[in-house]
Design a protein around this nucleic acid. Structure first.
Lengths: 231, 231
DNA sequence: GTCATAGTATGATAAATATCATAACTTTAT
DNA sequence: ATAAAGTTATGATATTTATCATACTATGAC
């Protein structure tokens, strides 16, 4: 992890837009000055469960996973966050310490703003407050409703769902490199590693996907969608 | 459902406290005047999936369930909300329509505030905004983290967990009437009705609980806790 | 009351998934 | 280059859970 020079030059940054829309010019400059960018290598720990929440963290580039660590047993992945998602979406405003960890699945850069400063901005600017609430609620909603969606699927449905998630929402390509190993996919969908592997093999045998190690090519997307929807 | 006279006399109302702490006297009076109390009978629909979100709804008394309706299949219960929990915690600030329903499990009374009015208050008062965010985030966090907790348990663990949930968090008594039938418990923990019934029977045979129809008495709480923790 | 309906209960069986075992293949460290 | 460790893969088996079938019980409508 290393710190990078500060600039407010990211396109598509919702936070910046919120500021531009609702905050006066001189405050924006302050934000751009106090924000700290941090670069992480694949596998690096970005947030550690139990540590105090001191920053408002936003993903500028890369890909990260939020997960709960489990002593003996296997962990549980809560969500995969992509650029311009909040990284510390949970607990930021409701708790003092993180109750989940975040690590980088790919080389990633985060934007970090002092949480007290953001809180001051919220206090000072209700319109900004409303924008932040909207954004944060949206993320929580998505997690809750998607977890319900996944919960009712069998393992075929869940694996199909994950493959389509990466193809459509993350990489926007039917050919991509899985950022998770099979064990992590299992932790994400709540099934065992062996059965994830088995299911991928079955999809391969049925000609629905091609597997080259961590690289996946979706051959019959319609079929995969069908398995995801009805599985 | 019937409307009741408006008063701001509820003890323990977080919303009122938020107002008292952060809003000027004259505004509080306005809130108390515009708020509408609605009474619902057990089984009544409070919020219907798909309908527009127009109010900020707070549970004053009773017990409700939030759930997603599923056409053909069985539904899915998202959470049981008790008094002073927000009822429309999800989507209030992030969506225009409800994507879940709420019904009364017991006779219930809700406090309804015009959502646009609350939004105006948030815009006008950042400190109030921060209080609301804190409260809403807390509820979302709880749902997400508890669903992860439940997800890793087998059916014995899940049923034990639910029984302890009602005993400890809702009724604060080892003897209570289940507000859900067996099918609904199944919808809550994501298992089949038959297996919920079977598990309850096993707990009864093992002398862990006593069953009198919908009434449950927890006999060996320590054992039940153990099953919940390690099951 | 009694009829219909929903809810509770239990057993038998089928299906899904986990666990255990083993091996080939990859990556990492030395 | 090689050993060690981790990952992917597959089969055999055990366990868990769902499904199907069938009663029995409670509840509400008439």
């Amino acid at each position: 992890m290393k710190e990078a020079p500060n600039k407010c030059d990211c396109e598509k940054c919702d936070v910046k837009e919120m500021f531009y829309e609702h905050v006066e010019e001189q405050h924006i400059e302050v934000v751009c000055n106090i924000k700290i960018e941090k670069a992480f290598k694949k596998g690096d720990m970005i947030i550690e469960e139990g540590k105090p929440i001191e920053s408002f963290i936003y993903l500028k580039s890369g890909l990260v996973k939020l997960f709960k660590h489990r002593e003996d047993e296997k962990g549980q992945i809560i969500i995969i966050a992509k650029p311009f998602d909040f990284v510390n979406l949970l607990s930021v405003f409701s708790d003092t310490n993180y109750n989940y960890s975040v690590t980088a699945l790919e080389d990633s850069v985060t934007c970090n703003l002092d949480l007290d400063y953001i809180k001051d901005m919220i206090r000072a600017n209700g319109e900004f407050a409303l924008s932040i609430m909207k954004k944060i609620s949206k993320v929580s909603d998505t997690i809750i409703l998607e977890s319900l969606t996944v919960r009712k699927k069998n393992i075929h449905g869940r694996v199909a769902y994950i493959l389509l998630f990466f193809a459509d929402q993350i990489y926007e390509d039917k050919y991509f490199e899985l950022p998770l190993n099979r064990r992590e996919i299992a932790e994400f969908i709540g099934k065992t590693t062996e059965n994830v592997i088995r299911t991928l093999s079955e999809f391969r045998k049925d000609g629905i996907i091609k597997i080259f190690g961590k690289f996946i090519e979706i051959v019959d997307k319609e079929k995969l969608q069908q398995i995801s929807d009805f599985g």
